[in-house]
Design a protein around this nucleic acid. Structure first.
Lengths: 128, 128
DNA sequence: ATTGACTTTTACGTTAAGGTCAATAGAATG
DNA sequence: CATTCTATTGACCTTAACGTAAAAGTCAAT
């Protein structure tokens, strides 16, 4: 017997609002069952929510996230669609590699800032 | 004699609009000189624009980008501000490390999708 | 002198991703 | 059964980061 989650259980677990989960349902990303009017989420929905949040953190739009979820769920049967998909995947990978580099560069910059601040702190600490 | 850039030179170089550059000026991120009413950007402005775009790619807001630029430009003199800054830097680094992990996971997932698609392609290619 | 390319300011418009609020409905607990 | 949570639907609201359009100035080239 699969465990079902209420909406507030999930909002607490993931630190998001009920509005957000209903929004994701409206967008067709999750498909909770209903007991009466109340939503009950499955493990699969919970897993999708994790994917959504991960995509969100790296700046994907809902449309892009949906695209990835669908691509995973059912690879297209038609040749043209498959080639299109491969092209999109390649684009995304290039984009993500650029982002990785941007993140590394920014972390390096933050480390410089940190050292500047620590140096100033030491000066002030000594002087006061 | 330092080379100065017109606004369209920069829009072409960076693939952004004039509106965007004026917006960044309104936000106090760049400070082009004026010849008459026309803006002329320095190397330093050009460099800042690169930083803005990098920050933008990894999902920083303009406010966050400004914060980093200012922190770099002039580390605060007061102790409380310095400690606050160190705290913020640590937060950002944690956030960026999470993003790195998210990106790596997503790239791995894209690779799975790619393989699925290539497999399907091979099947179709053989069958047709 | 006119065209064309480029620039300026002002100001309203747009989009994504939810926030917020009101009215209503079930569900659970004393 | 009355109360008290918690959920739902529907509607309008919000914010960031620009887009877009209008009206007008600048400057070189034709």
């Amino acid at each position: 017997m699969e465990k079902l989650y209420t909406i507030t259980e999930l909002t607490r677990e993931f630190g998001i609002s009920t509005r957000t989960l209903r929004f994701y349902e409206d967008e067709g990303l999750v498909h909770p069952e209903r007991r009466g009017r109340t939503r009950l989420f499955r493990h699969s929905d919970r897993h999708i929510i994790q994917n959504i949040l991960r995509g969100r953190r790296i700046g994907f739009t809902i449309a892009e996230i949906r695209e990835i979820i669908l691509a995973y769920r059912e690879p297209p049967g038609e040749l043209g669609q498959l080639n299109l998909m491969l092209k999109r995947v390649t684009e995304k990978r290039i984009e993500l590699n650029q982002k990785r580099k941007d993140i590394d560069d920014t972390i390096a910059e933050l480390e410089i800032i940190e050292e500047l601040a620590l140096t100033r702190l030491a000066e002030i600490g000594v002087g006061s």
